[in-house]
Design a protein around this nucleic acid. Structure first.
Lengths: 248, 248
DNA sequence: TAGGGGAACTTGTACAAACAAGCCAGACCT
DNA sequence: AGGTCTGGCTTGTTTGTACAAGTTCCCCTA
């Protein structure tokens, strides 16, 4: 059972993507939409708030809402899971575990994960056959058995963990910056040492705020970019491959 | 006149930052908060929704809200304006125009900005006296006169444009990736050619969806990182200086 | 003691109503 | 012609109510 406002949001989104409301045009007023869907104004408001959070429409008091764009930001799942992002965007992807072993947590790791025992996994992810991402992930001890049981070429770890033990990644904190490739980075990604890499470091937790993993992901320059559409109230984020829309 | 829910949100935020609600602990229920602030439950709901959007608290149906962290994400203004971000975080910053000239727009620029005539400005921004950011910005022709009138060492262009002509940057679209420093980049930032830079490209528009500027910003590696706290519904984004919380 | 069944609590969804605040266009005046 | 003003429209805020859905924890039972 999907919520009413979600269905209304979905319909409006489709209308926009279909071109019924071109970019730059005005959306119907809340009252009109309420009448059209036989819903209360508050419900319609929730629906358009969803679209605003996705960056599709903008709004300001007193004036009609306007359509800002047609590229939707799927945000969370796609930011978190390489596989889900790649699948959603139709890319051919793969992945393989390079090494994997349990060991005691270092000081900072113990502090972040709240555990003394961790599982460290080194993975390479490929896009269209090319290695583009080197993942160095440290899992908390309590989830380590489930992770260790996964096949080495597991496409989506997130999906596999959900299927296996019902684990849901609910919250994440990410830091994005640029670093030079180390010798090891360079070997696995097929680039020269010192070449620029896009680094994403993150801590992920469950619904209850229990830390699950701590990861250092490094993308080959030019392969992937992070994209943010934002307004005063909302900042969705997605990942994009190469230079799809911005020229040099 | 600030909205009621904003004031409640501000109070709750302060309580969290002050440690009254430690990380991992539960927030009072909506009913309790409603009683405490003599507000309707809906109003309190709006307030905690603000905190959730900032990534401070998480929520799921049926369970009390929990405190996720204490680092607030100020998002839009700080993502957009180097000066506002630096000031909010107490850094000493500066900036200087390297070059500035009007010229006809190239093909992609004309498409993005919807104008045939643009103003290109090259700026270097400093943090604690060190050059950390090279901004190559192209302004739409209609705002160019106001930009050209600014002093060369103008600290906050965003603020200055607001003061001068009431211009508000309302929406932005950003692309973040890593690139190698060109010879020119290297000279202005004081790094070696080929060293990694964090690149942020963005298009900014007004409330009405009218494009204002198109910019290519390059940060020296290690000087600044982008930080995102996200959950299913919200992805705020901030910029952070150096490695404040994540070790090597 | 381990497990099942509820009851109480908490957040999510939906509706209705009212007023505030800001925008816009047409009417009006100079 | 040009600027001002006002009235209607639209979004923003707040309150109140009701029910749905999920969580938590206690108690009772096997």
């Amino acid at each position: 059972m999907v919520a009413r406002y979600e269905r209304i949001a979905a319909e409006l989104r489709e209308d926009i993507l279909r071109g019924a409301h071109p970019v730059g045009s005005q959306l119907p007023s809340e009252s009109e939409l309420a009448a059209r869907y036989s819903a209360a104004r508050g419900t319609v408001r929730q629906a358009v708030a969803v679209l605003a959070a996705e960056g599709l429409v903008g709004s300001r008091q007193g004036a009609r809402r306007i359509v800002l764009g047609t590229t939707r930001s799927q945000s969370f799942a796609e930011l978190h899971s390489f596989a889900q992002w790649a699948r959603a965007n139709g890319y051919a992807f793969g992945g393989e575990v390079i090494s994997q072993h349990r060991r005691p947590a270092t000081g900072p790791e113990a502090e972040r994960l709240g555990e003394q025992d961790v599982l460290e996994v080194l993975r390479v992810r490929t896009l269209d056959g090319e290695p583009v991402l080197l993942e160095r992930t440290v899992y908390a001890g309590w989830i380590a058995p489930a992770v260790a049981a996964l096949p080495a070429d597991c496409g989506s770890v997130t999906q596999a963990l959900y299927d296996a033990v019902g684990l849901v990644f609910a919250y994440g904190e990410h830091l994005i910056d640029a670093v030079a490739a180390t010798t090891a980075d360079a070997r696995h990604l097929g680039v020269r040492r010192g070449s620029p890499l896009l680094r994403q470091r993150r801590v992920t937790t469950t619904h209850e705020g229990r830390p699950v993993e701590w990861s250092d992901d490094r993308y080959r320059a030019g392969s992937v970019a992070f994209s943010i559409r934002n307004s005063i109230g909302a900042n969705p984020l997605v990942r994009q491959a190469g230079d799809l829309r911005f020229g040099a």
